[in-house]
Design a protein around this nucleic acid. Structure first.
Lengths: 147, 147
DNA sequence: ACCGTTTTGACAGCATACTGTCAATTCAAC
DNA sequence: GTTGAATTGACAGTATGCTGTCAAAACGGT
């Protein structure tokens, strides 16, 4: 079955992307996971609490919680008081975090451009479509049993 | 950039596939990772040592080592003496392992069929092609720096 | 206003994958 | 044949993700 083969490709691509991402941002003292959290925080139109970021990223709340705690300890994000909730602090970039994020951007663009070179845009779009369709089905099935 | 978006889709699809796989084989007391190792062992034309299986799967040697040790402890695989290497035992399925593998197959087929339903085969093929191309590029780049 | 439900972060523990290091073994070059 | 390089498994440690449980806080229906 073609789909089973695709699964293996997804596993490998995922592993390689994480490894390559780690390598890419290592000079900045970051990792793939922290970079992704930092990016989500940076892109949010307004500071969000951890649980909201986790939903945005499709990760478990506690995974993001730990990463945010580490980023806060590293001084890359600040925990701002939330007027609407005493415990759920709002996460926003610190000065250093903004710096790191900008530096990542400069590294990321040529990296992605190099990877994309020679790949047909339409095929990338089709691949994304297939993965999103897969995602929807998997999420629905997991939801069926969990809730 | 379209490719960056695809990366996020790959991350999510990977996480969901692992979670769904865990759920699928949980009744058999297995996990996604062990299932994949078991499958690789079962599919090998002849019993292979751990390091060879790891290369087959694109995983680090030690990751597979641990999983194989656990599978051996669970009695699903046997470690057969290797006439060509005193330390590198050959991994092969035990009776129980063969049983589990057959049971997995029966579970897996309807699951995959259900997921594939409505997906166009050509699009799946294109997605696989994109991911393989991506894999080749990422592997090459990582290799550049590591070796 | 009150009480039950939901959300949230803290804490603890597990599974998976990675890396680095070491000793035993095999292999290859000479 | 001997010696140096590569392979292999054991052991230890790290990063990421998950889950479960708990108490504090917020929310909602009555």
């Amino acid at each position: 079955m073609a789909l089973s083969a695709l699964f293996l490709d997804i596993f490998r691509a995922n592993a390689l992307l994480v490894a390559s991402g780690d390598e890419l941002v290592a000079p900045l003292g970051l990792t793939s996971a922290r970079w992704q959290v930092l990016g989500t925080v940076a892109m949010a139109p307004t500071p969000q609490p951890v649980a909201h970021i986790a939903r945005d990223m499709g990760l478990a709340r506690q995974s993001v919680q730990r990463l945010v705690n580490e980023l806060a300890e590293a001084g890359l994000v600040d925990l701002r008081d939330n007027p609407h909730h005493k415990r759920a602090k709002l996460i926003c970039l610190s000065e250093a975090g903004r710096h790191s994020f900008d530096a990542i951007h400069k590294l990321q663009r040529p990296w992605v451009d190099g990877l994309a070179e020679g790949l047909e845009t339409e095929k990338i779009a089709i691949a994304a479509e297939v993965l999103q369709s897969l995602r929807a089905r998997l999420e629905q099935r997991l939801g069926d049993q969990a809730e």
